[in-house]
């Protein structure tokens, strides 16, 4: 999802675990939360850093496609709402970086890895936002898919990650509703051109949204260990199915057509049958060859480098003030 391809080891059987690992697994099975300074297997720590880091990077890179429309939102109200939403994403990134930092990595280290292309972020943010309806589709579909993944992660075994997810989920429903509201206006009260624009956004974002859940379970080699550790709660296909089932009626209400001729209600399974996304496209985007990968990374690196003088300046000021206070105390003694 926001962490789509987190590499991890295969799951260990109980017999292969050391006594410490067994005791750790017992705690997880009992539903206890693991807290920062407690003993944990090295693989658990490393996998979590990768997963939470990817998730944090996705929040930050995810600001770019939406930020693109802040200056061009159609009304002042829409602009204020979109600005608030994009600001929220910065906060989500911050909560997640903080959670990762409790595992012994610094935020600057994580950002360096992102900027060097050594850490990933969600494939979805490598698609362009071409028209205003895209902002509606991003809120409705992309944040909708994110919620699907993040709600169960509130119960994840790592305390700081779980607490970050609880904060994030409180804000996500605002995000999804603001997106749907944009499309409601365009589809139910808009002109034919505006409706066509909304359908075009739907056509382009449907499959990339389905890809957010990661590869099909049969090709997802890393799930077993993560599920055993409760840092992944549902399988990719379970979440994708839930997302489709939830989204189809919402699309029908808007009068939008889901771009999938195979989409059909399946009474027997109590859910929709649907086409898989093109996984070769997914792997190409993840590997850096999506429509906007280069643009996104350039924007990130430029922002980071252009902000360096500011970060250093404030730190130098803080150090100078601290020195002055020390000197003043000294003189008074």
């Amino acid at each position: 999802m926001y962490a789509q391809l987190v590499s991890a080891e295969g799951a260990k059987s109980r017999e292969d675990m050391t006594p410490e690992e067994n005791a750790f697994q017992d705690r997880i099975d009992r539903g206890e939360k693991i807290e920062p300074k407690e003993w944990m297997p090295e693989g658990y720590r490393k996998t979590l850093i990768r997963q939470i880091g990817q998730h944090a990077h996705s929040e930050i890179v995810g600001q770019l496609p939406e930020g693109n429309w802040i200056t061009r939102a159609p009304t002042l109200e829409r602009k204020a709402i979109l600005l608030a939403k994009v600001q929220d994403e910065a906060g989500h990134g911050l909560y997640l970086y903080s959670a990762a930092e409790t595992l012994g990595v610094s935020r600057d280290e994580l950002l360096d890895l992102l900027h060097a292309g050594k850490m990933k972020y969600s494939s979805i943010f490598n698609y362009p936002t071409l028209n205003w309806a895209d902002i509606g589709a991003v809120g409705w579909l992309v944040d909708g898919a994110a919620i699907m993944n993040q709600v169960p992660l509130q119960r994840t075994s790592y305390g700081p990650y779980s607490r970050a997810m609880i904060r994030i989920c409180k804000e996500e429903s605002f995000h999804q509703r603001q997106g749907y509201d944009i499309l409601l206006k365009m589809c139910l009260q808009g002109t034919e051109d505006q409706k066509a624009m909304a359908q075009d956004a739907m056509n382009r974002f449907w499959y990339p949204a389905l890809m957010m859940f990661g590869p099909s379970d049969k090709d997802s080699v890393h799930s077993a260990q993560s599920m055993q550790w409760k840092i992944k709660i549902n399988t990719n296909d379970e979440l994708r199915q839930k997302f489709v089932d939830q989204t189809v009626p919402q699309a029908e209400y808007l009068g939008l057509t889901i771009p999938d001729p195979n989409l059909k209600w399946n009474e027997e399974k109590g859910g929709y049958d649907f086409s898989e996304p093109d996984w070769s496209e997914f792997f190409a985007v993840i590997a850096g060859n999506g429509p906007c990968n280069a643009e996104r990374m350039e924007a990130r690196v430029t922002a980071w480098e252009d902000g360096a003088w500011f970060r250093e300046g404030l730190m130098a000021h803080a150090n100078k003030q601290a020195e002055r206070r020390k000197a003043a105390r000294h003189a008074a003694e």
Binding site: A84, A90, M315
Partner: peptide
């Protein structure tokens, strides 16, 4: 306790906390 953040000094920590945690 609501979370953590980075800031150069105490004053900026309060300002950043206002911006992130009391929205």
């Amino acid at each position: 306790h609501v979370g953590s953040l980075h800031a150069p000094d105490a004053e900026m920590a309060i300002r950043n906390a206002r911006d992130v945690y009391t929205r």
